[in-house]
Design a binder for these strands. Structure first.
Lengths: 276, 276
DNA sequence: GTCGGTTGTCCTATACGCTAGACAGGTAGT
DNA sequence: ACTACCTGTCTAGCGTATAGGACAACCGAC
């Protein structure tokens, strides 16, 4: 059960099969081709096929039955959290699930150049850096690294940060918050992030970078959030806007669902399937 | 220059360093830690470090100078595309850069179960599957897999698809388009996607799944888009909404900039820095 | 110049992913 | 029972990535 190292060809095959399963190309309950068939099809030895299947099996994606074959397991549905964008909840406490926070680091540091520039710090100015991991039902799903200018960070304590959302702390201390600019991308899990989120190194992550600005236009908070895509994803409803010739999508204006669960509908199923 | 096989640890290190460079965590022009230092830091041998640096060097990301060190090269500025969400441009032709499309596959197939369900197809109904790669300045940045119900797909030809945006084709053929539901996540590049996008297998990708619905509520298009995060990311402006106690972010209502470039301002710089 | 640190090159030994088999035991259909 | 196919386990051997060195050539600071 160590499965520490992920070899090359076996890893490829595992990734490939994982996607086929996640995308529904191989329906749940269906039987995979036999190991010799897979070996022949992908030009690898049977041992390699078995290694790939081993990792899928230990992830609970497939079910191997001696004598009959390997089958795609029905997902036990630890349904991922889906954050609604039209609503854009800042925090998930309201989602009806038990969430928690672990504070991994807290210190005043020299911020990386990119962060300093985003926050509008002068050279040499320090920032308060904190690293937190958010949990849902005891399972970690996001890794947050925040930088706050030192003058603002001093208005609250380390214990505050472990208990109260950062934005609340900022507002409580009189820091006005106006607008923010954020970017969504993707990254790989580094060693530390991988361990904190219970992943292997090199796992894919949703990356969100948000810079929060106060009314004076100065940066107040720099947030780098990394999400496990199998437990967290962004969802939004769009509608078609604009005249012919210049048509585009625009997000549906805040239609909050009280349940906190993501807006139901056909999209959800697809979202799960595509989480690969 | 064969570099056919990508070893394990060297590959990880290369990916990790590549991202640190792309994210600006190691500023352009800065000097990397020495090879012995990197080896110690990551718990690998110097040979492995060198292999990782070799791939980065051959990609033109770093500059190695005997006797003085290894430096991050100033990027030749293939600036990443930043898609504005408040605006949510469906297509990038307007962005003032030469874009192109390559049609990789076009066929009528039995759709995977998840797609059939999202589109509301009955068992046995076929769909038109197409795989396209979008280019910008000759460089691929997105890999699009679309499924359209067969009855709708028949209204246009393969050549049409290679030249005209799909949504335009749909609307031109009288298919009304109302709303869409989309989800954003992250994945790893499989073998085929990796090759099409000029990436290594296992590179991180932004994954967007969109299901487009017509006025009758039936699915019209199922899109799975995979983006290279170093060339494409989502950007949006938010402002603080809601009363105290229940405050949240909401997207800035469509403030279109005519330039097509993402909305300028302090956020842009941050977006680039954090695009990793 | 001297000295410390750097990259470039070479070496050997080990670890391990992969191949190519053979064989045992289970399952399902005939 | 018989047969065909499946997964599970084991073996032997090969290729190569990795570890851990030693050494040369180079650069920059003092």
């Amino acid at each position: 059960m160590d499965a520490s190292l992920e070899p090359q060809k076996a890893r490829r095959l595992a990734l490939l099969l994982r996607e086929r399963i996640a995308s529904g190309e191989i329906a749940p309950g269906a039987r995979l081709p036999g190991e010799p068939a897979l070996a022949l099809e992908h030009g690898v030895s049977r041992v390699t096929v078995r290694r790939a299947l081993d990792t899928l099996a230990s992830d609970g994606l497939i079910d191997r039955r001696v004598g009959s074959g390997t089958f795609v397991r029905e997902p036990d549905a630890p349904r991922p959290i889906v954050a609604d964008f039209s609503n854009m909840l800042t925090h998930l406490v309201e989602m009806g699930r038990r969430t928690g926070v672990r504070l991994l680091a807290f210190a005043y540091v020299q911020p990386p150049e990119a962060v300093a520039q985003a926050l509008g710090l002068k050279a040499g100015e320090r920032s308060q850096r904190s690293v937190r991991v958010r949990l849902i039902d005891g399972q970690p799903f996001s890794y947050l690294t925040t930088h706050v200018p030192e003058r603002i960070g001093l208005t609250y304590s380390e214990a505050d940060l472990a208990a109260v959302p950062l934005l609340t702390l900022l507002e409580r201390s009189g820091t006005a918050i106006e607008r923010a600019s954020q970017t969504i991308g993707a990254t790989l899990a580094g060693p530390d992030v991988a361990e904190a989120l219970g992943l292997e190194i090199g796992s894919p992550l949703l990356a969100l970078t948000r810079v929060v600005f106060g009314p004076d236009g100065r940066g107040v908070e720099h947030l780098q959030a990394l999400y496990r895509p199998d437990r967290y994803s962004f969802q939004m409803e769009l509608h078609r806007a604009g005249d012919a010739g210049e048509r585009r999508w625009s997000p549906v204006p805040c239609r909050t669902t009280d349940s906190g669960e993501a807006t139901p509908g056909p999209g959800l199923r697809a979202a799960q399937a595509a989480r690969g």
